[in-house]
Design a protein around this nucleic acid. Sequence first.
DNA 1: GACAAAAAACCGACTGGGTGGTATCATTAC
DNA 2: GTAATGATACCACCCAGTCGGTTTTTTGTC
Lengths: 188, 188
Amino acid sequence: MNKNYQKKKQPEAVRAGLMDATAEIIIEKGLSGLTLDAVAQRAGVSKGGLIHHFASKHALILGLNREILAEYARFIDEYVAADPQPRGRFIRAYIRSFHTPLKYREAAKLFKAFALEMSYDEELHKICCDWYQDIVEKHGEAHPSLKSQMLLFAADGLWMEECTGLVSIPSAQHEAIIDYLIQQTYDL
Amino acid sequence: MNKNYQKKKQPEAVRAGLMDATAEIIIEKGLSGLTLDAVAQRAGVSKGGLIHHFASKHALILGLNREILAEYARFIDEYVAADPQPRGRFIRAYIRSFHTPLKYREAAKLFKAFALEMSYDEELHKICCDWYQDIVEKHGEAHPSLKSQMLLFAADGLWMEECTGLVSIPSAQHEAIIDYLIQQTYDL
DNA sequence: GACAAAAAACCGACTGGGTGGTATCATTAC
DNA sequence: GTAATGATACCACCCAGTCGGTTTTTTGTC
């Protein structure tokens, strides 16, 4: 570990930089605007270097997706652990985690891009399904009530609204809605 | 009807065919899989013919989007008109219309594709925002309660789940959730 | 109704830029 | 040395949009 001393090459940093660049480009231009050249250039790496770390564009996308899902999972874990009231704990954590700024700013846009691609990419779909199933098995109720499910869907809907900016809610109102959802989780 | 008898060219039918082909391809392969050649071929038209009807790929996408939004608006209008109870009427119509099969099967996937593209296409974004604003001004409440907003978001979330197939809800449970949401709209 | 001119509808080969991926060579770490 | 890391050049393919042309339909005029 302490061999890093005087290391000129730092593959892990390069790899992280590539991930960041990928995320930024997807946020700015969407998945369709993601090109290997652009990623390499933004990360200050050659295309060959990029391909060395991620064998293909697909691998790059999957890698980023995995990383982001892992981060969301960490958020949810933390929120659940910090919540003394068991009832509705998972839903509160779910709501809060999806409205917490992540490592990647505007991560919601990223997630939305993946949400679309899921329909056409089985591997990506499976990764996301497994993630969701794991998180529910870990924290969720075995037989959630209709109200619980409604609250989860409402959190998803609000998240989507954030992504698309369709309704243009003032941020104060946005907060109010989240508070309302949280409040509802105490009465399940 | 019989006037068509001798008509060889039917531009409106061709145009409609191009729309259908576009929708089908987006459903199958997503927006990124949409190519002018594929649309033309599926519709049985040459590329030149396609370009004659839609000046660009962008125009094609916007045209289809407009058509679908109009169809959703019609659904909502009908549901509102048929609902004797004014309170929560719009929300019920909203929920129901987004779970009604449209002209284009699996239209949800289409809509999801547009929802993504909105972030990167100002024109598309404006069309959708205007549509939403119009429909709310027409039927919605001026100052919706938090619960009203929550129900709308829940409908959106459920719709998204339909698109992505993330949670894999049995259809019976799906129906139960919709019923629950509808039921909630009577108590606002 | 006739008939020419204009307009609309339609065709398909071609272009030019972009992009994913490969092959090869150079450098650094251990 | 050699394995990991990274740079550069390159290729084959795809795809949006162009362009000159043909065919059909509509329009204007007598």
